[in-house]
């Protein structure tokens, strides 16, 4: 598949059905067939910000949307879809918060890795960093 394309800003809406105030990914690219890289700049008006910190449910939603967007990315690159697929989280496993929550103006950088993909169920592992510090790790089951 073509993994050159980088989605950002308005283009990200081609990969996700979520819209403001709960659009939690603002860039997505592919590292290779099984690994995607998503980003999010934390703005002060983000619905998951509280006292200047980006909270845990925001991190989990960002990771879920990173995975969902990468599934759409692959489908579009492979020509099996024209637009965003509708993805739902089936299960969150082994979410771990590593140290401090991210702050307003931080930029999240999340690697999502496909572990398995059977029928419409995709298992992911994910790692979210701010600069080079790991903020959260997680596994997720996504139904698309």
């Amino acid at each position: 598949m073509d993994i050159q394309k980088i989605y950002k800003d308005e283009d990200i809406k081609k990969l996700l059905n979520q819209r403001n105030p709960i659009l939690m990914v603002d860039s997505l690219s592919a590292v290779d067939d099984l690994n995607g890289l998503a980003g999010l700049t934390i703005h002060a008006d983000n619905m998951f910000c509280y006292n200047g910190k980006f909270t845990e449910p925001g991190l989990i939603e960002h990771i879920a949307q990173s995975a969902s967007a990468f599934v759409s990315y692959r489908a579009i690159a492979e020509g099996t879809a024209d637009n965003a697929l509708l993805g739902f989280i089936g299960e969150v496993k082994k979410f771990k918060l590593c140290g401090e929550l991210p702050s307003v103006n931080d930029i999240l950088s999340t690697t999502v890795s496909i572990q398995s993909s059977v029928m419409n169920i995709t298992m992911f592992s994910a790692e979210t960093k701010v600069n080079d510090r790991v903020v959260a790790t997680c596994q997720m089951k996504l139904s698309v």
Binding site: E56, P57, I60, F88, I89, G90, E91, V92, K93, K94, F95, K96, L97, L101, C138
Partner: peptide, 11 residues
Amino acid sequence: LTISAVSQCRF
């Protein structure tokens, strides 16, 4: 309370 871990959450 800070959510330090979610071992499993099923929807």
